[in-house]
């Protein structure tokens, strides 16, 4: 199992870098070319969500992305350090109600895109942060001709 780890300050301009790196590693691992667009989009959505959570929560820690090459699959884990409140709980009051609603809407739209794109996805959240794990099947690279 080979892993590439990427950590970046929670700034929107770095999300593109994460997309490019993830797509490069995915291609190397044998993810089908036709699926690379989906990988790029899904990892971008996950990172955008994490950046938003860190920024709105005033969290200075970086966003963490793990790109994991396994035998028959390629996985991406995007972790944030934002404490997640259980559904139904009132989140901490910051910004106006409209702003908070807009943020929630965008957050949900990001997750909607991820779940629409990726068959194998797992979203977990706890007091210490959240994690989105996504996997794609890989085909082993063709053996080189002698």
């Amino acid at each position: 199992m080979a892993t590439v780890e990427l950590r970046f300050s929670a700034l929107p301009e770095h999300v593109r870098t994460a997309r490019l790196v993830a797509a490069a590693v995915a291609r190397r691992s044998g993810v089908d070319e036709a699926v690379l667009d989906e990988v790029r989009l899904a990892v971008g959505e996950a990172c955008t969500r994490a950046v938003g959570l860190h920024q709105s929560g005033g969290i200075s820690a970086p966003v963490r992305v793990l790109l994991i090459e396994e035998e028959k699959q390629f996985s991406i884990e995007v972790g944030d350090e934002a404490p997640h409140t259980a559904p139904g709980e009132v989140p901490g009051a910051h910004g106006g109600a409209d702003e908070s609603d807009a943020e929630t809407e965008e957050d949900e739209m990001g997750l909607a895109v991820i779940s629409g794109l990726v068959d194998d996805v797992e979203v977990t959240a706890g007091e210490n942060g959240g994690l989105i794990r996504m996997s794609w099947p890989t085909t082993p690279p063709a053996t080189l001709a002698p």
Partner: peptide, 9 residues
């Protein structure tokens, strides 16, 4: 070339 949920929003 690329559009994500922020763009949709």
């Amino acid at each position: 070339d690329f559009l994500d949920s922020t763009g949709l929003g």
